[in-house]
Amino acid sequence: MRGLSPPSTLGLVLAFAAVVLAAGLAWFLLSSRPTPQPIAFSHRLHAGQYQLDCLFCHGNAARGAAASIPAVRDCYVCHWSVGEGRPEIVKLERLVEEGLPIRWRKIVRLPEHVQFSHEPHVRRGIECAVCHGQVEEMEMTHQIRELKMGVCVECHWENRASSDCLVCHH
């Protein structure tokens, strides 16, 4: 560094701007792309080809706040036989033998300071696809739209649901 002149204020500002831009770009690229999962689960196969209802695996969406992901052993309701020997099913078998969970990566994100519950939405018959898109056409799922307050409030108005602050911010 001794041979170089100290960086100017402008240089520092530019360096800071470059870091901000790079971080923003990385976040955008990572968040908008389909995310690889520990097991290459295909919604196109399960929900598309075999027409499994969303609630078959995510039944808790009709019962409580979190849609939930089935326990590994519940995959075995079909996979004791279906797809036997396929590489992704072998991965599943290994996890069951070792008693390990599948560390699925979270795809759909909500803003902070909002509490979302699936149950009242399912009860009102709001299609899962409104927020989650046509997952039956997705090999790897991704977030189809940013779920910001405007989206929530607009839908609440359209469906004459309460838009009281405390409905979501509690």
Partner: peptide, 13 residues
């Protein structure tokens, strides 16, 4: 911690 991580149960949790 991020508040957007909602309290959902992990498998086997």
């Amino acid at each position: 911690p991020q508040m957007e991580d909602q309290p959902s149960l992990e498998t086997y949790e």
